[in-house]
Design a protein around this nucleic acid. Structure first.
Length: 232
DNA sequence: TTCCGGCAGC
DNA sequence: GCTGCGGGAA
């Protein structure tokens, strides 16, 4: 069985269990972008509190956020954790978003994927996962988002070697699946849901839709990951 | 007490 | 490579 079939097998098992997850849970693309920064290494339940606090103060627009003092902003997003760092990152992102696209997600989405990705990565506080989350969930670009759950699940099911980095894992999906934003959206959502529910630090394999793990969790090298890059 | 939908600085 | 950032829920 090839890699494409392995991946689609995972997808089908998870999809049968969880169904459509309707990601990203947000009211509009700008809220997706804000959420993508706030959820960095943070439980989503805490991010929801910070988003709600921003909404309540009517600050969930590019202009309103850009006019909010950084220390004040930090206090408002406090429940999301790392609030001083994230206030600075939100500020930097919003300034970028206004300067480059006038605060318009449509304008941002009009550009080509790769140059846009590079520009996002140039914003301090925006790394690969945050950039790709914005590209996929806010701009609807066919970019696969990898994350800690994706890595853990693929490692445990021996679909990647132990030293696989973000780009390698992303490439595994993008080189072996059709470039379909709706597919990448649901696939990532399913991986996160499965990671939260079953593939925790201590795995709960018995009820997991992906079944039990090999006794030896050590990863084996993966053949046929597509070799080259899907883009560039 | 652990863990969370990363990233940057060193 | 290793560390700081951090409140909230399990």
């Amino acid at each position: 069985m090839g890699v494409s079939e392995d991946l689609l097998h995972l997808y089908d098992r998870m999809n049968a269990r969880f169904g459509d997850l309707h990601w990203w849970p947000a009211d509009g693309p700008f809220e997706v972008m804000v959420g993508a920064i706030l959820t960095q290494n943070t439980a989503w339940t805490n991010v929801e509190k910070a988003i709600a606090a921003l909404k309540q103060r009517r600050l969930l627009t590019p202009l309103a956020l850009s006019r909010t003092d950084e220390a004040t902003l930090a206090g408002i997003i406090r429940p999301s954790g790392y609030y001083n760092v994230k206030a600075k990152r939100l500020n930097a992102f919003v300034r970028f978003f206004l300067a480059e696209y006038g605060g318009s997600a449509e304008a941002m989405s009009a550009g080509e994927i790769l140059p846009l990705r590079e520009k996002l990565l140039g914003v301090p506080g925006v790394g690969p996962e945050t950039a790709d989350s914005i590209l996929l969930f806010a701009c609807r670009k066919p970019v696969f988002v990898s994350d800690a759950y994706t890595r853990r699940i693929l490692l445990r099911h021996r679909l990647i070697p132990a030293d696989a980095d973000y780009h390698r894992i992303q490439n595994l999906f993008m080189a072996n699946l059709p470039p379909d934003a709706a597919l990448f959206n649901q696939f990532h959502a399913l991986l996160v849901q499965t990671g939260k529910t079953f593939c925790r630090k201590t795995p709960q394999c018995a009820p997991c839709p992906l079944g039990t793990l090999p006794k030896d969790e050590g990863a084996v090298p993966l053949a046929g990951d597509g070799g080259g890059r899907p883009w560039s």
